[in-house]
Design a protein around this nucleic acid. Structure first.
Length: 275
DNA sequence: CATTTCACCTGGTGGC
DNA sequence: TGCCACCAGGTGAAAT
């Protein structure tokens, strides 16, 4: 589910509902895939800590944690949602959804739950006394500047869509927003990244920013089952121009939207508007 | 090093 | 109803 707008929406929701709360009990399921830090060690480290704030970095949700009573952070809980992960804040009485892998009981009586059918998501505990705070290599698409953006693609021979999906270049753009941004910028997904002109690259940078900001305003895209921290669906899927619109008329020119494979991913574009 | 392909998982959909 | 192929928001390891 989660690309930058969905992760941003979830992080804000969890922040608003849990900031200042304390983790009093942790339950983890028995599947091992979600645990980048071993479950037993992770559960023990989380218990008792304060949630000082929740932020987004690329597609990662970063919860800053501190010792009870303290005003500084000494650890982080980093959540990556993979394809189907959800992070929701509920009451303990709410029915437990299938594929729930983590339940964090908070002092307020609320509960944070991590649910992930495909188990591509990951949970990591970072001790800030032992390692640095989470930071991926990729640049943030909402704040990157013109020159820095152009530099990312210089000399690259892969398709621009494949480059946009590379999280060590730009962090946060995934399959939906790559397709929607390329449509908005009028660029074919298979164009070689290193051959785009400066004006085209600037148009792409702005398209990405505008698409992501609009999607955040609408609470993200709910293609099948994405919901935010309160269990509420997003609305951006209602204004998608190309993603999952194969065969439907282009909203601008009426030409049927095409689907091809790029970097192994379903890729949607308008053959007339994207030259 | 840059790039491409595939495995990792479950579930929904549509054809026969 | 059953079975099968194919598709889905991501990424990291292995192959090229």
């Amino acid at each position: 589910m989660p690309e930058l707008p969905e992760v941003e929406t979830i992080a804000r929701g969890v922040h608003n509902r849990t900031r200042g709360d304390r983790i009093v009990e942790v339950w983890f399921g028995s599947h091992t895939e979600p645990f980048k830090t071993a479950a037993a060690e992770q559960a023990k480290a989380l218990e008792g800590r304060l949630i000082r704030g929740v932020n987004r970095s690329g597609k990662h949700i970063v919860c800053d944690l501190g010792p009870a009573g303290a005003r500084h952070s000494d650890a982080q809980w980093v959540v990556h949602l993979g394809m189907t992960g959800r992070l929701v804040v509920t009451t303990p009485e709410a029915p437990v959804a299938p594929h729930t892998h983590a339940r964090l009981t908070l002092a307020s009586g609320r509960e944070i739950r991590f649910v992930d059918p495909r188990r591509f998501g990951r949970l990591e505990f970072r001790d800030l006394e032992k390692k640095a705070g989470f930071a991926g290599p990729g640049k943030e698409p909402l704040t990157i500047g013109t020159d820095e953006f152009a530099k990312l693609f210089r000399g690259r021979r892969l398709a621009i869509k494949a480059a946009l999906l590379n999280q060590s270049l730009l962090a946060g753009v995934g399959n939906i927003y790559a397709d929607e941004s390329l449509y908005r910028a009028g660029i074919r997904p298979r164009r070689m990244a290193g051959r785009l002109t400066r004006p085209k690259l600037e148009r792409l940078r702005l398209a990405i920013k505008e698409v992501l900001e609009h999607a955040i305003q609408l609470g993200g895209s709910s293609v099948s089952d994405y919901v935010d921290a309160d269990g509420v669906r997003g609305f951006f899927q209602l204004v998608h121009c190309v993603y999952l619109r194969t065969g439907l008329p282009c909203r601008r020119c009426g030409t049927p939207i095409r689907r091809i494979l790029v970097a192994g991913r379903g890729t949607h574009y308008c053959p007339k508007c994207q030259q």
